[in-house]
Design a protein around this nucleic acid. Structure first.
Length: 558
RNA sequence: AACCCCGUGGUGUAAUGGUAGCACAAGUGGUUUUGGUCCACUUAGUCUAGGUUCGAGUCCUGGCGGGGUUGCCA
């Protein structure tokens, strides 16, 4: 087929803007973006969307994307967060090359810009307390009023600002304000604070500074200093854009990046506020930022989600300016989609029911061939031991099976995956009437799972040899991270944690599974995907359930 | 209430002013040594009222609906 089968990539509004700028040679054919997190927490699935946008659009246009720590507020930031952010972005598959920056490295330059603003008569030192300022600022419907001191001389402002830096004033005693328009309908343009006094140990710069720039002043300058062309951010900054442009215009800076906003990700049932996630960590309602129930990148990684799945998800949700609520099922579809292709299959039984093959010799062990991954033949084969005593899953046996049940029952024949056809001859119960053992026979002719006479069985079940089985622990996390629906106002998200999400179970695995490495996600056939957790020790393997398999039988019988 | 942004199947998204398409979810059937995967099919949509036009999801006006903004956070 000669026609290019590549899907015609639909162009979202954001890519369209970049393409238009490129066409008009707006930035000399250059595309330079940045991902600028504040290192005040771990990255989550919402950040993944921003990361994909920032890095991919740069990449698509042969540009570069910077990774920048927006660390202008020392009270919430630390190096642990910096390191985690770098690790997570890298893990997602993106490379910032040489372009790793700290906003705090620009503090001296930003201070100079602030001085320059004062010299141009476009900034002044304000003595109002936060309470007094609230009165002057006005409201959404009423204009603000100009504070006294707004008309201070440039010399006096310069002097006062220097004194602010020199630590002559208490925290909060003064701020530096941009002199814009107290009557603007956009409150952010009503003489916004651009520098505040805050004596707090900065995680990198220590006590070098007691004044710190505010976001609205700092961010556009960071972008400008780094020669960014397109500065993507979320919708809540839309109303800040006039200020972004005002600062750069007021300073007449040559590098004037364009801020473009897109809608942030909302995921059903998922808490995505850093503040709330921090609360969960601090109050030990979860075991750290990388708890597999957390919607953090590190939590999802530990749970077994793949970077590709997350990237695919970000491609699928697209980029718009519409406040949407994405169904978490879409994320799960991407996770299953990738895992189905890459995860090796293993036999493992979670609710063991003993099966004795009466016509199989007690001392014999048959090593059977099993395919590691039917989706990926190159993954090869392995051997699975078969012996007289086996475990099957309790769910795969019913004493009185309904019509559509294809698995084992009295006098029924099923296939043991990669093994033999077996027929249930006898059901043994304890004094309470509970089934404790099945006596079966196997058909030696069906070794490997095929009957030479061509007879068919409807069911294929998983199993493990009792004497070869290795016991491990699985954590049965629920399908979702946290239970809170945006829109369900007033719900205390902490009480919404699913208590079942912590339940654990024993699992009896085929011995080959002991070779799996920590962090690897595998499929327990017919049950789900599981990821070997870092908590595993020499004595005990611990798996996190990544996600279940789709199960049409279970769905019908719900 | 003021200003800004946004309204396409249940959900997420496409469509130089020219056949409303894709994915998820749901449902039906087929293939299958995982009740998985894969494949086929079905259900279902342009918020509303006018206007411009040969022709409007797209452009204009009004209405309705949703979101954002009132930190010395980012």
């Amino acid at each position: 087929m000669s026609t290019d089968e590549k899907n015609i990539e639909s162009v979202d509004f954001l890519r369209a803007i970049v393409a238009e700028d490129l066409k008009n040679n707006k930035h000399g054919g250059r595309v330079e973006t940045r991902f600028p997190p504040e290192p005040n927490g771990y990255l989550h699935i919402g950040h993944a969307k921003a990361i994909c946008i920032d890095f991919k659009i740069a990449e698509e246009n042969n540009g570069v994307c910077h990774l920048r720590m927006d660390d202008t507020n020392p009270t919430k930031e630390n190096m642990e967060y910096v390191e985690s952010i770098k690790e997570d972005v890298k893990w997602l598959g993106f490379d910032w090359g040489e372009h790793f920056y700290y906003a705090s490295d620009y503090f001296e330059q930003m201070y100079s810009y602030a001085v320059e603003l004062i010299k141009r008569g476009k900034a002044y030192v304000c003595d109002l307390s936060p309470e007094e300022w609230a009165e002057h600022r006005g409201t959404l419907t009423e204009a603000g009023k100009e504070p006294s001191g707004r008309e201070r001389s440039i010399e006096e402002n310069l002097e006062l600002f220097q004194q602010m830096r020199d630590g002559k004033f208490e925290d909060g005693a003064k701020v530096l304000r941009a002199k814009i328009d107290m009557a603007s309908p956009n409150i952010h343009m009503r003489d916004p604070a651009i520098y505040r006094i805050r004596r707090f140990h900065h995680y990198r710069l220590g006590d070098d500074w007691c004044v710190y720039p505010m976001y609205d002043f700092a961010h556009c300058l960071e972008d400008s200093i780094e020669n960014i062309t397109h500065s993507f951010c979320t919708l809540e900054f839309e109303i800040h854009r006039p200020l972004y442009d005002w600062v750069l215009d007021a300073l007449e800076l040559e590098s004037h990046p364009q801020q473009i906003e897109f809608a942030r990700l909302n995921l059903s049932y998922t808490v995505m506020s850093k503040r709330k996630l921090l609360e969960l960590v601090q109050e030990k309602l979860v075991n750290g930022w990388d708890d597999p129930r957390m919607p953090t990148i590190s939590g999802m990684r530990r749970r077994g989600y793949t970077a590709k799945a997350i990237r695919d998800f970000c491609d699928t949700i697209g980029i718009t300016k519409f406040n949407s609520l994405t169904d978490v099922a879409l994320l799960e579809h991407c996770v299953r989609g990738d895992l189905n292709k890459v995860a090796s299959r293993y036999l493992a039984v979670m609710n063991p029911l003993k099966v004795v093959i009466e016509n199989f010799d007690e001392n014999e062990v048959d090593m059977l061939d099993a395919v590691n991954n039917p989706e990926m033949p190159e993954a090869g084969n392995r051997k699975v031991p078969f012996s007289r005593e086996l475990y099957i899953d309790r769910n795969d046996f019913m004493e009185d099976p309904p019509k559509k049940f294809f698995r084992l029952g009295p006098d029924r024949e099923v296939r043991l995956r990669y093994g033999y056809f077996i027929t249930c001859k006898e059901v043994i119960k304890d004094e309470n009437g509970e089934v404790v053992e099945l006596r079966c026979t196997y058909d030696p002719e069906t070794r490997g799972g095929n009957a030479p006479d061509g007879r068919k069985v409807k069911g294929t079940i998983h199993w493990v040899s009792a004497k070869h089985a290795v016991k491990a622990e699985v954590r049965l996390y629920d399908r979702l991270f946290l239970y809170e629906n945006p829109g369900a106002n007033g719900i205390d998200f902490k009480t919404q944690l699913n208590p079942d999400s912590l339940s654990t179970a024993d699992v009896y695995m085929e011995p080959e599974l002991t070779k799996v490495e920590v962090g690897t996600c595998v499929q327990f056939e017919r049950q789900g995907y599981f990821c070997l957790d870092k908590d595993s020790t020499d004595g005990k393997m611990v798996f996190n359930r990544t996600i279940t398999l789709r199960d049409s039988w279970a769905k019908k019988n719900k």
